[in-house]
Design a protein around this nucleic acid. Sequence first.
DNA 1: CTGTATCCGATCTGATACTG
DNA 2: CAGTATCAGATCGGATACAG
Lengths: 139, 139
Amino acid sequence: MSQRNTAVPSELRTLEDAEAMIAHGVCPIPPREILDKIAGKWAIQIIVATSRGPVRFTELERLIEGISRRMLTLTLRNLERDGLLERTIYPTVPPKVEYRATPMALELYEAMLTLTNWSRRHSACVAASRERYDARQTG
Amino acid sequence: MSQRNTAVPSELRTLEDAEAMIAHGVCPIPPREILDKIAGKWAIQIIVATSRGPVRFTELERLIEGISRRMLTLTLRNLERDGLLERTIYPTVPPKVEYRATPMALELYEAMLTLTNWSRRHSACVAASRERYDARQTG
DNA sequence: CTGTATCCGATCTGATACTG
DNA sequence: CAGTATCAGATCGGATACAG
């Protein structure tokens, strides 16, 4: 076989692990359908907001600054569809609906923290690089 | 002061760390301008492709399946602007230009691996959840 | 209270043709 | 080889009005 004799690591930690995957023909980055969760403008914020317990629709609308009712509904539906949010309806009048992050969503939130660390370490550097680049274009 | 007496962790590892940040009024997720790197359809793939050494424009075009010349150029420029890619021009005829991921980009790539792990663990579950959800809507 | 429906502008992406 | 320019289609997200 044409593959190197390194094993496919069960858990990726280093770039070397990623190289091993590539050597085995496996893609070391999440598929688009997963990245799209993170890409969306509101999904992560909703997961964070519902990570400590059930939250009602209107509470979310207040909590997440700038979100429109339309996008709140759409994003909630998508997250529920993916199994990242649990939706509970209380058949009262007026209706009461609660959303809560699932364990899988909490793990996603936790996985995001390495990205948060990266951005805390480097966002100033990114901003500086942008300024330099833009200055070169202008000048 | 109104804050809890937990310290702001310098490195986030657990959801508890994230809670501590929230208690201090700090957002525990990366800002939009950082998430947008990951959100883009091609950025991560380009970082991976250039992570082992300099790669030429045309090589990238071949390596990254389905990318248009336009999007390749645009994404390369954005990554260079952010300091994630280093661009080297050799003033030869015909011209030769090489792109290479910076150390900062390699760290981003590495940070992404926790997300890759998450998706490897859960993407089947997400897919199953979607099917169940869609079946409920149809039926 | 918890949504849905409709419209609209902005942005993203691809296709194609052209150039130093 | 390494781009740029232009156009068009698709998708995203916001504003607003309406409804069970």
